[in-house]
Design a protein around this nucleic acid. Structure first.
Lengths: 173, 173
DNA sequence: GGTGAATAATTCGCTGGCGAAGTAATATGG
DNA sequence: CCATATTACTTCGCCAGCGAATTATTCACC
C-alpha cells in the first residue's frame, strides 16, 4: 500500500510550499492529475518520435501520414482538411506535402470536377512504413498500461471520458 | 448511466473496423485511454497558449518563465539547466534569453567564481505576468476536473500514478 | 604550473512553420 | 452572363529552434 513517490509527488510537495494562489486555493490532486497526464504524454510523444525516426520518418512526416490514415476515408484527404486535423497552417501543409511526395510517402492527385481542389493519398510505401510505426506504438501503449488490470483500465478510461465529454461539450455551447 | 459518446468513442469504433494489428491484438480500452489523454493535453495546451497570449507573452516565453519558476530554486537557474528542463537546445536557449531579457522578463547575471557560467533570473515583471497566466491555468484545471468528485479525482490520480511510476522506473533501469 | 581535456555559452547556416499576399478556379446574384 | 465574392492552394518573407563549430574559461594531472 505504501506507494513510493513519483516525480509528480515531489513536484507537488515542493510547489505547495512556495506557491499559493490568492484567488483560487491550490489543489494538490488537480495539480497532480494534470502533471501526471503531462508526464505520460511526454513519454508517449518521445516514444513515437523515436519509433518514427527508427522507421526512417521524420516526426512530422509520421504525423502527417497518421492524420491521413485515421480519417473516415483512410489514406485520402485534401491539403486543407489535413492541415486542420494537424493544427498547422495551409502554408506549412504545402511544404510538408512537397517533401513527402518527393520521398514517395504520399501523392497529390487532381480533382476532375473542381480544379482548385487537390487530393492527398498515402502511397503503399507510406502506408507500410506508417503501419510499422503504429505497431511499435501499440506495443508501447500496451506495455505502459499493462501495469493496470483490465478492470482498472476500464475505470481509468471511464473517468477520462467524463473529462473529455466535459471539454468537448463546452466547445459546442 | 447511458453515457453519450465522446470523440474517442467514435474514433475507436471507426478504428476497430479497418485496422487490426496482426502482431498485437488491438485493445479498445488502451487506445481509448491514450486518445483521451491526448485530447485532454491538447485542450490544456491550447488554453495555456491562449492565456499566455492574452497576458502578453508568446507561448515559448511563458514556457521559459514557467520552467524557471518551478525549479527547486524558484526564479533562478542557468541557461544549460533551463534548456534541459525545457527540452530545447542550448542554442535555442541563447535566443530565447536574448529576447526575453530585452523584453524585461528575465535577466542574465554573471557568476563571480566561474566566468563561464551565467545565472538566469526572473524579474519582478516576469514573475508577475507568469502568476497571471498561472492563475488562469489553475482555474481552467479546476473547472475541467470539477466534473469529477473529490473521490473520483483521487482515484484518477492514483491510477495515473501507477502508470507514471512504471514509466519513471523504466528509465532508471 | 603548464598543457590538454572538459564545460558553458554563443554564433552560424539551415529547416520547418507561420501569416499575409498572390494565383487560379468556381460560385453567386443582379 | 458578367462582375464580384469565395474557395483552395502556393509563394514569400520572416522567426524560432537545431546541430555543429567557435570562443572563453576552468579543471585535471604529470
Amino acid at each position: 500500500m505504501a506507494q513510493p513517490e513519483d516525480s509528480t509527488d515531489r513536484h507537488v510537495a515542493r510547489w505547495r510550499g512556495h506557491w499559493v494562489l490568492e484567488t483560487a486555493p491550490y489543489d494538490d490532486t488537480v495539480e497532480a492529475i494534470t502533471t501526471r497526464i503531462g508526464a505520460i504524454m511526454r513519454h508517449l510523444r518521445e516514444h513515437k518520435k523515436r519509433a518514427a525516426t527508427e522507421a526512417g520518418l521524420q516526426d512530422f512526416e509520421y504525423d502527417t501520414l497518421h492524420a491521413l490514415m485515421i480519417r473516415d476515408t483512410p489514406g485520402t484527404s485534401s491539403p486543407t482538411a489535413l492541415a486542420a486535423d494537424l493544427g498547422i497552417s495551409p502554408a506549412g501543409m504545402s511544404g510538408r506535402l512537397e517533401g513527402m511526395e518527393k520521398a514517395g510517402f504520399i501523392q497529390r492527385t487532381t480533382d476532375a470536377t473542381d480544379r482548385r481542389r487537390l487530393g492527398v493519398e498515402a502511397t503503399p510505401a507510406g502506408i507500410e512504413i506508417w503501419r510499422e510505426v503504429m505497431a511499435r506504438r501499440g506495443q508501447e501503449e500496451d506495455e505502459m498500461l499493462g501495469v493496470l488490470s483490465a478492470h482498472e483500465r476500464e475505470t481509468l478510461s471511464t473517468l477520462l471520458k467524463r473529462v473529455t465529454l466535459h471539454i468537448e461539450g463546452e466547445r459546442n455551447r
